[in-house]
Structure formats: C-alpha cells, structure tokens
Design a binder for these strands. Structure first.
Length: 403
DNA sequence: TCTGGGGTCCTAGGACCC
DNA sequence: TCTGGGGTCCTAGGACCC
C-alpha cells in the first residue's frame, strides 16, 4: 500500500491532499492541543513548527509514514519527529489511528483474497500473492490480474497500492518498488541483468545496513557485483547459510513459497518513557509501567487465545544498548500476575546501574490456549507415570542408564 | 536534534540426555 | 592421563522487516 498510514488519514481529511503530512507517535492528542490554546484554529492541521509545546507533542516519536509531498523535504519513515520538524516545519503531524489502519488493512486484504486466495501476510500494509493458479493470472505476464487487484482495492478503500509481478517473491518485492505510487511493474527472468543487477545490494529484502556496510567494504555495491563474486568468498565472509543465500538472491533465485497461514511465535509489549528513568529513584513509576505492560500482554494473549511458556523482558539503557532476560516456566500461562512475577524475577537478574529508556515484556513458546490445556494434562500424566515407574523399580533408577 | 512498537529468524554456547 | 557423537532445549544477543 502506498504511504499507507498517511493515505488512511487523507481519506478522512481530504483537504490535506498534496500537503506534507507526517504520521507519527505524538504524546498529546488533538483535544489536548485544543485546550493548549489553539481553540481558534483547526488544531488538527497546525504545522508542526507552530506548536508551542512541540517537544511535548512529538516527544520521542518517529515518523511511521510521510506523504509523498513531505518526502520531498527529505523526511521519511523511522526519522525522529523532532528532526522532521526542522527539515519541514510546515509539515502537519497527525497521530497514528491504529484502529482505522487495521480496519483498512483488513479491507484491502479481504479484497485481494476474494480475487486471489493464496495470500501471505507481511504486516499491515503488505502482502505476497501467488498468481500461479488464478484464472487469467498469467495474462500479459500477470499485469492484467495486477490491474484488477489494484482497481478493486481502490474501489473498496479509496487507497492506492503498487504491485510487482515476478517469477518469485524476491523479485516481486523489488519490482513493487519500481513504479511507486499506484504503479505496476512486471519483471521476467531475462530482466535480471538489465533491471536487477544495477540496483544497490541494500534493495534486497534481507540485506540491511550491517550486511550492506560489510559488502561495501569488500567493494561490492550493486547486486550485479554481488552476483559476480565467487560463491566461496561469500561463504567465507558471511558464513555458510548467509553466504549461500546472498549468492542465490544475487542471481534472482528464490524458491520460498507463499505461506498463507502461520502460528505466532511471540507477543510483546514495550514502551519508551517520556524521559529516562532511574531504577532506584523512579522505582514506583517504573513498577507501575512494568505492571501495566504485563497486564496488556496478558490481555493480548487471552484475546488471541494463546498461552505462553516463556516470559522475557527487554530494556534499553539511555545509551541505547539493549539487554534481555528470558525464563521458561514449568507450565503455560496467560495470567497477568504470573507474567508479572516471572518478568520481575527476570528484571532482578539485570544490573540496573544506568538510566533506562525503554522497558518491554515478551511472551514466547506460545501454544493455543485449548491445546496447551491438553498438553498440560498429558504432561502431568507423563510425570505421574514416571513417578509410578520410579517407585515401582527404584533399583533400575539407581543403576540407571545404558551400562 | 537524536533514534517507536511489534514482529521473525539466526547464531552460539551451555546444560542435559542417550 | 584422557576424555565420541549425536540430539533437544534454553538463553542472550543481534540483524532485519513493516
């Protein structure tokens, strides 16, 4: 989806069309700003630089999405809002409306599923679609179906998207960037040299800043240059798995399937404080935040019908370093007090000398709530049986084992 | 002027088991 | 004086993605 979060807001406020708008986490909501002295104007649309309480409003937020008009000024995703305000003082900042975003997300995804059922979720604003078995999916190399999907999404939501069509997911993802916004691009296998190889390595989904830097140090800047490397060199520099993968993707090869459903691996809640907190001096405040996170996490688990066996915590110090601690419990749980207890134990295992910036709680080793109850019963039964065996034949335990 | 929140996957070492 | 070869599970950290 094109500039998804921002586009959703433009549906609501069409008068903002063409203006630089950025969506990001503001700490103060619009109604608070009204009270703060903007009653005479429509405070929703006051340029960011005009806020007397700019810092309070944007806080430590970052940009989730910027409209294309805002991108002209060099602002973009993941940039701090304070920095964005300097680069583009006339930008209008709106908070993220997650409910609305999720609503449109469901809407565009169900529109796609109605046309092409093999769809893989890739977050709120992105999917992979398998055209292979869709009637007409091969016409004009997939362009006809892509056009139909684009049109149907626009009719259902009023939102535009960009579609890349290719023989595999890797190339389709890159192709989707070629013609933004509201574009379609079709890539064939024989386009590899002319259209993929000139691109920067960073354009490969899976090569991030670290790998890119390492490649640059080896003088490898384009995908073509990467493809030209001896496989052995990549294996040596990036390890067996990553090296082999890099070689494959540079040659446009990817046989990963479009996966239509999957079980969640973890759920988490985390929050960055308005100011850095000290473990001792701000103990009470920290404790309340911590408990709140555990309660939210327990809620999430219950609402989605999962229980967890492992509870983890994460904290970020004022110097941005991260520490995590995990603990696996004897049984599954989605209970807020249990989570709080285990998370608290985890926290005690981390030295808290520096100030903290972020605190998070994570549940992993998940199981569907019903299954886990069954598994638990089974486990208890197994444990009981083991005890029975042990008491029935203690000498076997004593001599034990193979020898 | 700093730098969100929610995820997945991988690696590497250690405990423990057969 | 010298100590295998599997396997699984757990933990901590890190890269990467939307």
């Amino acid at each position: 989806m094109d500039a998804f979060f921002a586009s959703v807001e433009l549906l609501r406020y069409p008068q903002l069309k063409g203006l630089p708008v950025v969506i990001g986490g503001g700490r103060r909501r619009v109604d608070e700003l009204l009270r703060a002295g903007h009653a005479g104007r429509d405070s929703r649309f006051i340029p960011v630089a005009d806020f007397p309480l700019l810092k309070d409003y944007v806080g430590r937020g970052v940009i989730t999405t910027a409209t294309y008009a805002a991108r002209q000024f060099g602002v973009g995703s993941a940039m701090g809002l304070m920095k964005a305000a300097r680069l583009c003082p006339q930008a209008i900042v709106l908070p993220v409306d997650f409910d609305e975003v999720r609503r449109y997300s469901r809407l565009f995804k169900s529109t796609i599923s109605g046309i092409a059922p093999v769809v893989q979720d890739r977050g709120v604003d992105e999917v992979y679609i398998d055209f292979t078995e869709v009637p007409g999916g091969q016409r004009e190399g997939g362009r006809v179906l892509a056009r139909l999907i684009q049109k149907s999404i626009f009719e259902a939501t009023g939102l535009t998207c960009s579609i890349g069509v290719a023989p595999n997911r890797l190339l389709a993802k890159m192709a989707s960037e070629f013609n933004k916004p509201n574009g379609i691009s079709v890539i064939y296998e024989h386009d590899l040299q002319s259209r993929i190889w000139p691109l920067a390595c960073r354009k490969i989904n899976g090569i991030g800043p670290k790998a890119d830097e390492k490649l640059a140090q080896l003088g490898i800047r384009s995908i073509g240059a990467l493809a030209a490397q001896p496989r052995a060199l990549l294996l040596e520099r990036f390890g067996k798995a990553s090296g082999a993968w890099m070689h494959e993707v540079a040659w446009g090869r990817d046989d990963s399937p479009v996966v239509t459903s999957s079980e969640p691996v973890s759920m988490s809640r985390e929050t960055t404080f308005e100011r850095d907190l000290h473990a001792v001096r701000d103990r009470a405040q920290l404790g309340a935040i911590f408990t709140g996170l555990c309660e939210k996490l327990a809620d999430d688990l219950k609402r989605k019908g999962y229980v967890a066996k492992t509870i983890g915590i994460k904290l970020r110090y004022d110097d941005f370093r991260i520490a995590t601690r995990d603990q696996t419990m004897a049984s599954y749980s989605a209970d807020a007090r249990t989570i709080r207890k285990i998370a608290g134990d985890n926290l005690k295992r981390i030295p808290l000398v520096k100030k903290l910036r972020l605190l998070g709680v994570r549940a992993s080793a998940l199981a569907p709530a019903g299954d886990a109850a069954e598994a638990e019963k089974f486990n208890n039964k197994a444990v009981e049986e083991e005890k029975m065996r042990a008491s029935a034949a203690p000498e076997k335990i004593a001599t034990g084992g193979l020898f």
